[in-house]
Design a protein around this nucleic acid. Structure first.
Lengths: 252, 252
DNA sequence: GTGTTCTGTGTATGCCATACGCTGTTCTGC
DNA sequence: GCAGAACAGCGTATGGCATACACAGAACAC
């Protein structure tokens, strides 16, 4: 419980600016921000697999090994990139705003953050959120649930549930968009093709529930359908949370 | 809508056994199953990063390039490994079983499948589920929702919601376990350290909701707490689904 | 001004996926 | 039976990757 000295991973200290500059050596020619920004530029242009140390170094006009003066491993760079790309969380819950619309805004913010930087979803998660932006997002998510009567663990579970759903959904739709772009098709066509493929594979065999699903036309995947699907899942989650809040208020 | 010819990705055709053997050449010395099993063996022993073509080939006593007679790229092998590792879905919904316990069983099955083969979560997803086991899981998930009055798109969204949550939760806990194993600690200690780290970072600054969270003790992370957290999220989702089913029944 | 410490970087190591072409095997068509 | 096609296994080569290590020079401490 001693607050004195809790060791932090190196990349986290770097991201929070907790590393003291030594002073004795030559001056650095780059800033951390420049390195991270260069990595993001590469990812944005050619995708995460294109982010190699040499490529990022080239972007900055320095030698490959110079990057290791700023980052101890490639994974650290990716962590910092991801945290930076999340950017500012949505505006905090307003004074007259209920927890539900606030949490819905927060959830949508998660989705748009990933859609703005689709490569984020391929960054291997290296641990629980400790980056400065991730912590700020966490703060806003928890703030949306203040005064609901939910216990600490419940508030935490709730925002994990919501952000997990948002991440899943954003990943799914981003995959679809990327597949469509790769094959120069419409996202709708990619979806329709999937249903055809599934139908062919399940035409014979013990798949009654899937055939039943395909019989009603799921493939009416217009743009509005996508939005509706997102909203459906979110509403289910928020309904569940609301039920808990209400029952908690009733018994207390 | 022509059911005649829908092109399928090569790895999918392989997994379903839809590839006809040519006959004209020499006999193959390996089976697909052997190759996939060898890959799984390596992943199980040393983790997904250890799965290289040469390592898998070594496991089978053949040359590296021989694998390319069975699989057109490494990604295909990973897809096949993941599908095989999911294995059989949970038992189908029994005749007297309600949709809710059946779906809960299905959700738990998702978690245990990932916990049994933790490397699964690092396999890059290459598209919507088409592998034979993935389709069978989908079938069982949808089957749990038969007769609930939910529309097709709603049944689909529901199982995506549930499986996404299960995958998220399994990933989180597996990450924790791996970090603990790597540093030879108790998972509890890893969790406790996280809260200390977060407390240190948010001690000063605009983080009232996080500090409020930390003030109640979230760190009572016993084994039962983990189970409770999983159950909490699942119950929220299922409560939300139940509310929809009820309202649907009331208006119809 | 001397020594220490840090920066940028060139070089080297040991991985990796995979393209290509060769050898020998098996079956097809005759 | 036999010619040739199609295919299996695999040796070699290519171009990429992260990163360990050592060294030159720069900036500061004393």
């Amino acid at each position: 419980m001693s607050d004195a000295h809790v060791e932090l991973p190196e990349s986290i200290e770097l991201a929070w600016g907790l590393r003291e500059r030594p002073g004795r050596g030559p001056r650095r020619s780059l800033t951390m921000e420049q390195v991270v920004a260069a990595g993001i530029r590469v990812a944005e242009a050619d995708g995460l697999p294109a982010v190699s140390m040499s490529r990022v170094a080239g972007e900055l006009g320095v030698a490959t090994m110079s990057l290791y003066r700023y980052v101890s491993a490639k994974g650290d760079l990716l962590d910092l990139m991801a945290d930076a790309a999340y950017g500012d969380p949505p505006a905090p819950r307003g004074p007259d705003e209920g927890w539900r619309p606030a949490l819905a805004r927060w959830a949508l913010g998660n989705v748009t953050a990933i859609h703005r930087h689709p490569w984020i979803r391929q960054v291997p998660i290296s641990g629980p959120p400790l980056g400065p932006n991730q912590v700020r997002w966490m703060e806003q998510g928890l703030a949306a649930l203040r005064g609901t009567g939910l216990r600490a663990a419940e508030r935490l579970s709730t925002i994990m549930l919501v952000s997990g759903y948002a991440r899943n959904w954003a990943t799914l739709t981003a995959d679809l968009d990327e597949a469509a772009a790769r094959e120069q098709l419409d996202p709708d066509d990619v979806g329709a093709r999937y249903w055809h493929q599934l139908a062919r594979l399940t035409r014979h065999g013990p798949y009654p529930a899937i055939r039943e699903l395909l019989a009603e036309n799921v493939d009416g995947a217009e743009d509005e359908e996508f939005e509706a699907e997102w909203q459906f899942g979110l509403d289910r989650i928020l309904d569940g949370v609301e039920a808990l809040i209400r029952s908690r208020r009733a018994t207390d």
